[in-house]
């Protein structure tokens, strides 16, 4: 069973979002990393990039799969986690403590579109 947390919101494309003031911290859910298997590569867009909802903010690769990571919220990327390039396995090991990018929210109302823990649990139950 995948780990779920109360203190984050979830996107249907399997990112988690943690709000710190006007900053949204984005990572991949435990379910997502488990489905991918051992990650061998991760890449995120550089700080300064402006993204809309569902724009690609990076990609992750395991031996057998590759997937884009999508922006759950719009805004400017203010920080990108560049330690991932050398150590993508952090995502497998501590998915909720490994962030990919931090986005300055351009429209905090978008957060309401995201799923809560129960909603996401229902989504992954359906998918698996």
């Amino acid at each position: 069973m995948s780990e779920l947390r109360d203190d984050v919101k979830y996107a249907k494309s399997h990112e988690w979002v943690k709000v710190e003031g006007d900053i949204a911290v984005i990572g991949l859910t435990d379910y997502a990393q488990d489905q991918m298997g051992d990650l061998v590569f991760a890449e995120v867009v550089p700080a300064g990039t402006t993204v809309a909802v569902e724009d690609s903010i990076g990609s992750v690769e395991s031996v057998k799969m590759a997937s884009d990571v999508y922006a759950p919220v719009a805004g400017e990327v203010v920080e990108a986690n560049d330690t991932l390039e050398d150590a993508p396995e952090q995502i497998n090991e501590t998915p909720y403590d490994t962030w990919l990018v931090k986005i300055r929210l351009s429209d905090p109302a978008e957060l309401d579109q995201l799923l809560d823990k129960e909603g996401y649990a229902a989504l992954i139950a359906e998918e698996s």
Binding site: D38, V40, E61, S62, V63, P88
Partner: peptide, 8 residues
């Protein structure tokens, strides 16, 4: 073979 190591 260890494919993960090869790709990482």
């Amino acid at each position: 073979p260890n494919e993960t190591q090869a790709a990482r």
